[in-house]
């Protein structure tokens, strides 16, 4: 019996790996003859940042999977604490992440 779902995710993963490598490989080919300050590159960079902004906001506000069992207010509060620690205490990523996750864990265990 062939597991169709396992083949499906396997192929999607391979496709995703290949699609990612395409950028790296093209980068090596173009390295000596491309202007990475040109308008097209700026636009592509903007598109990827907008996608990332959208993905992160969606994962926090409308998560898929186990986070759906946690209240929206806990997730928002965790992000606010993380960002506040980041900007107020010298932009230390690891410290800020620990603070945000820590607050989130405390809230989830307490309520």
């Amino acid at each position: 019996m062939i597991d169709v779902q396992a083949i499906d995710i396997g192929l999607v993963t391979l496709g995703a790996i290949g699609a990612t490598y395409l950028w790296r490989g093209l980068g090596v080919l173009f390295a000596s003859r491309i202007n990475h300050e040109g308008a097209v590159f700026q636009w592509v960079t903007c598109v990827s940042y907008a996608m990332l902004g959208g993905l992160i906001a969606r994962m926090i506000v409308l998560p898929i999977g186990p986070l759906t069992q946690t209240p929206l207010s806990f997730r928002i509060f965790g992000v606010i604490v993380g960002l506040a620690v980041f900007f107020l205490l010298g932009r230390r990523v690891l410290l800020a992440v620990c603070a945000g996750v820590g607050v989130f864990i405390v809230l989830v265990s307490a309520f």
């Binding site: 995703a16 790296r24 980068g27 173009f30 990475h36």
Partner: peptide
């Protein structure tokens, strides 16, 4: 899924170009 992953990783192109 593959298209979105590819777009999310587009930054590797300029990164590689400037690093190689």
């Amino acid at each position: 899924v593959i298209l979105a992953v590819a777009l999310a990783n587009a930054r590797f192109l300029p990164m590689v170009v400037s690093f190689v």
